[in-house]
Design a binder for these strands. Structure first.
Lengths: 144, 144
DNA sequence: CTGTTCTCCTAGCATATTCCTAGGGTTTTC
DNA sequence: GAAAACCCTAGGAATATGCTAGGAGAACAG
């Protein structure tokens, strides 16, 4: 019942892009340094985000990645589902649920449904913008 | 981000015990048949529940297992945490959280905390009694 | 007092997943 | 044309998952 590094790093990566969202591409090198994550591993993670159209890549020197949309248009759920796969706690609930022949008899499915809803309710109502705001708050504290 | 069979089977096992909670021990053999789970695998799972004092075992012929407490005194969270380990979505939140030197800087931790709370809120407010009641409702539908 | 029905214990293993590392290739800018 | 970037694929160690197997020990029924 854990979120893997892939999903966690993807979120930090996207947050980093959102914070440095000036229009100029941000290189993986810089993100990797700031986030203290292996650049090579980040490459693989951002490839997924790139193919899904979450980011735009700019090749060559001075290249890097840019967010395709504004930070408020990415929910945490979008990012985690893309990188982690379904966030449903079991295979038999949520969208694209596998059918199970015990389904009708299965009271525990209700538990998983409730859990699924609770999880979605958190991740689908948080956007990158929220995280950027938290980051800003945090910085303010040091400034004041 | 999945609950493994261990936790899911443990819940079904405990629910089965709660439903057949007459005072007489229920054999694993019967539970395994009803739940369509390998008896040998269930043995390993119930060993955990037994060691933790969730169930009492009765050895020998006509033996089996009995709940130690009443169904309403077991939350789904109790059962899942025992069998799955912590339900926290990442290692750095929840009780017994590992320290992380990025902690202070880490905005994503807020996301994981919220997720953790949401999950706990579901599993800690559901008891075996609730599941038994659902089971009863379900049966009623067929009877009417 | 013996056979049957149970629980108990431990070992092992095939498969999948996780978390990377490595080594190149291609594109663009200076 | 060299450097700085992205792009692509392969592999691999470590761990977790989801069991199966085999037997030892306990208690009851007849």
């Amino acid at each position: 019942m854990k979120i893997s590094t892939k999903g966690r790093y993807a979120l930090r990566l996207m947050l980093d892009l959102a914070i440095y969202n000036t229009g100029n591409p941000v290189s993986l090198r810089d993100i990797a340094k700031r986030q203290e994550i292996s650049e090579k591993y980040l490459e693989q993670i951002i490839a997924t985000l790139n193919k899904a159209g979450f980011v735009r890549s700019v090749r060559g020197a001075q290249g890097g990645y840019v967010l395709r949309r504004s930070p408020k248009e990415y929910t945490v759920g979008d990012i985690l589902r893309l990188t982690e796969g379904s966030l449903a706690p079991v295979a038999c609930v949520g969208d694209g649920a596998e059918d199970c022949d015990r389904e009708k008899d299965c009271v525990t499915m209700r538990v998983w449904s409730m859990l699924n809803e609770a999880i979605n309710n958190v991740v689908d109502h948080l956007t990158l913008e929220d995280l950027v705001a938290w980051e800003a708050e945090k910085t303010d504290q040091y400034v004041i």
